[in-house]
Amino acid sequence: MLIAGLGWLLAVAYCTGVVYWVGNRLNPDDRVGVVPPVPVTWAGLVFGGSLLVVLGSAVHAGMLFARLRRQEYQHLSLPGRRLSAHDLRRCRDVSTFRALHRLVGEHAIRLGGWCGAALLALAALGCVAALSGTGPHRAPGSGWAALVDGAANAGDRLLGWLPVVVATLGLLVYRNDTVRRSVGVIWDVGTFWPRSAHPFAPPSYAERAVPELQTRTAGLLALPDDDPRGVAGIILSGHSQGAVICAAVLLQLPARWRRRVRFFSYGCQLTRLYGRVFPAYFGPHRLPVLADALTDRHGRTGWTNFWRETDPLGWPVPAAHRQVSVRDPEGLHPTGGEVVDPPIRNHGGYPESPEFLVERERVAGLMRGAVPSPREGVG
């Protein structure tokens, strides 16, 4: 309903803009006064104020990021380490990702909440003012009237460029990895939930992915002992949004099969993102339910969570049995005959890390059976 209402308001605004633009072109000498209606004036003022709120939030986030980056750089480049100029440059690169990890994990929800609350307050005030039928107060003979008119006109012009901005963002999604990843996070979160929660959204991929993965897992575990494809257990591995899908699968598996599953989560968003935005489903009181469901008869929880200090979308999960911190990068300079610096993998490349390989071998040994190895090319 909110999306439909926003679309309707934008359509009315653009139609009104076209009408008054044509009217001004047909009335070059201002023989007939063309005055925009009161709602259009208030819409321009509210949109201009909203841009100021967003700009202020962005500036505040930038200041926080700069402070966190300085802290991380000071921690990495301690005077006693005797680092070369190359290593100091690498420390600056690593501190950037570590600062982003802390900014998203410690401040993003708060900044987004304050910004969203301010925008909602402006929208509510704008609606009340528009419905009142009274325009902004213009004191004659003062600069306030010129300021109001200028702000309203600027807001209207900027609002007119909004479709161009959206189209440009859509183009950058195909050409820029950073923009694609940022938009992809929002898209994954929005399309995970069923359409009954937001009927104007695209179909939920979870309604297909969760049952298919559940069927595949149950099918492997249900194979008889004399079947050559039979396995003693399964390592269910989920990266980023995949960890959320795996959690939904595990909570729906029968208990007799769930005890034979070990869960690897990495780049996991269950705590800082889903746990805060959707606490009823992934809050601090819900994740222990998943951990209890994965506890075997010996009291061991089969959940290992991998995370990095450079991953802006992956954090520790207190409910998991084991927390494995993955080193990133593996070094500040090339080693072992390599000629290029070890890459900073941040949100990717977990299955190739030494910590992941060691943990997988350990868990596979505990399960005392063949564990299906991950297919090549599948993250």
Rank of each mutant, 00 (worst) to 15 (best):
P203N: 07
T134C: 01
M1K: 04
P343Q: 07
P211V: 00
V340Y: 05
L9K: 02
R110L: 14
E72M: 08
G242D: 04
H298L: 10
D177P: 00
L2F: 11
F47C: 04
P228K: 06
D156I: 12
L6D: 07
S240H: 07
G48N: 09
A145T: 06
A280V: 02
T295L: 02
E338I: 01
H321S: 14
G336I: 09
V231K: 06
F47I: 00
L172V: 01
G7C: 01
C246A: 15
L366G: 07
R81M: 02
G160D: 04
R67I: 13
R216G: 01
A370D: 08
R300Y: 10
A247M: 09
P203I: 04
L270E: 07
H60R: 13
E338S: 14
A197E: 15
P374H: 08
G379V: 13
G230P: 01
Q323D: 10
I234D: 07
A197T: 15
A154Q: 06
Q252L: 11
F306E: 11
A232G: 15
T215N: 03
N346R: 15
A370V: 05
V94S: 03
R31F: 07
G230N: 15
D341Q: 12
L100I: 04
V358Y: 06
D341Y: 09
A129N: 10
L45D: 02
N176C: 05
L251V: 02
R157S: 06
V179R: 00
P79G: 05
A121L: 08
S373C: 02
A247Y: 09
L45T: 03
L221P: 14
H101L: 10
P79Y: 04
N24T: 07
T271N: 13
G160P: 04
R362I: 05
T96E: 09
G5E: 12
R327D: 13
P316L: 11
H86L: 09
R286L: 08
V59K: 08
D311L: 07
R300T: 15
A85L: 04
V324I: 14
C15P: 01
D156W: 02
L357K: 15
H60N: 13
G267A: 13
P284H: 06
R175H: 04
G143T: 12
R297D: 15
V46Y: 01
R256K: 12
A320K: 10
P37Q: 07
P342W: 11
L6F: 05
L332H: 08
A139V: 10
A255Y: 02
G267I: 13
A209C: 01
A248N: 13
R327P: 03
L111K: 06
V34R: 12
W144F: 03
P284Y: 03
T178D: 05
L313V: 15
V339D: 11
N346C: 14
L287T: 11
L357S: 09
P312K: 09
W8N: 00
P354S: 10
V38K: 06
L88H: 03
Y20R: 08
L76R: 06
G56I: 01
Y350S: 08
V261Y: 12
V210G: 00
D93A: 10
G219S: 15
F356E: 11
E106Q: 15
P37T: 09
L147T: 13
H198A: 13
C15W: 13
A154M: 07
P279S: 11
D149K: 01
H75P: 00
V40W: 08
L251G: 12
R138A: 10
T191L: 06
L273D: 05
M1T: 12
F356T: 06
R92F: 04
L88S: 00
P36E: 11
H333S: 15
D311F: 03
F356Q: 11
